[in-house]
Design a protein around this nucleic acid. Structure first.
Lengths: 195, 195
DNA sequence: TTTGCAAATGAACGGTTGTTCAGTTAGACG
DNA sequence: CGTCTAACTGAACAACCGTTCATTTGCAAA
């Protein structure tokens, strides 16, 4: 048997990505086998190699896609205005983008050590660009006197850590809707850097 | 060859834990082999089974030890006083305890999914006790009117996330000493929940 | 209807995994 | 000095790993 009815490259390809993402988020990259991914797609293990040169590239593509999506979404969000408004924009954007992508966040932050050095560097560079977007807002606010903090870079990392940590415990079926979470976190961020 | 000079159970045992901790933090639980751990200890793979019934138990013991140490250290820190003072105490305690334990933090937060369900529940319960310590301080401060926040539980998780995220990027050989980091983070925490 | 080829099979590859265990060794004890 | 035993070796086990590839399949174009 081969090529079942209606089965095409444009269908199986995304299925492979989706299956890999879900399984890696659940069990970790090293713990997931190519045969598990294939089974979830409904295909034999060998067929996966029509869509990825190897397992490592599969992981890298997941992370690269996530970071590319993040940077593209941030760019097209086009947050403008005074630093205070932009900080609120960043905070709400971050939460809105990350909360519905729990699996991607998990993989992107937990599996960095399973990347080859050059792939690691490429992902890290993209993450850095995102961090710099926040840092720039904070510096602009400091310059205008609307924000006040001890160390801008450390504060950047602290705020990103707080926002990203949210993805690790928040459940979409939980007590609080996204909008409420947004409000709570924006309140914390706003006060933390207030002049 | 067997039982080299001065080699005893009380020496090899901790060596196994230390090697497992370091390797798992670096590569992840599933990616580390028993033979790698054994090599780092300076022993054959079979000898590890004098110190752990299996690989899974080795991971669990690392996490259990970390959480037990954390709770014991918190209890004996005996932070007292008004809520404001206790919040500062918690913040500084958390940073002081976690910063020198980067490997433990990494493993304890990243490898939860590699635990069996019952082992996961035991670790989660201990983590919950620690979170509750912070939540209690925040509630006490709210009752006295010195703290003000939208949702106490979410704020608890947000602050813990911010503090824990620190361990993921801070390097002891970096630009800032622990004391300075403590001051920066305490500043952020204090302002974030200020009335 | 025939042909061409993308897509998938399924078996096979060498290597590695966690774990077991009979046998070896070295230090402690009488 | 001989005996005992905790500690360790080294080889073996079946199972499973990522990856390859000759072969088969079924859709699309001619």
């Amino acid at each position: 048997m081969a090529r079942k009815q209606g089965s095409h490259s444009e269908i199986t390809g995304p299925k492979v990505q989706a299956a890999a993402l879900q399984l890696i988020a659940q069990h970790g990259f090293a713990a997931v086998t190519m045969r598990q991914i294939a089974a979830q797609v409904g295909v034999q293990a060998g067929a996966l190699y029509n869509y990825t040169p190897d397992k490592q590239s599969l992981l890298f593509e997941l992370m690269r896609t996530h970071m590319t999506d993040l940077l593209a979404a941030w760019d097209s969000a086009d947050i403008q205005g005074d630093p205070f408004t932009r900080l609120e924009g960043f905070t709400r954007f971050h939460i809105r983008f990350h909360l519905p992508r729990a699996d991607q966040v998990f993989v992107a932050y937990m599996e960095l050590r399973n990347l080859s050095p050059e792939n690691f560097a490429r992902i890290e560079a993209m993450r850095h660009r995102y961090e710099d977007a926040l840092e720039e807002i904070l510096r602009a606010g400091e310059a205008k006197g609307v924000f006040e903090m001890d160390d801008t870079r450390v504060t950047t990392m602290a705020l990103i850590g707080m926002l990203t940590g949210l993805s690790h415990w928040y459940r979409t079926d939980g007590r609080l809707p996204t909008a409420k979470i947004e409000a709570i976190y924006w309140d914390l961020v706003r006060k933390a850097v207030a002049a």
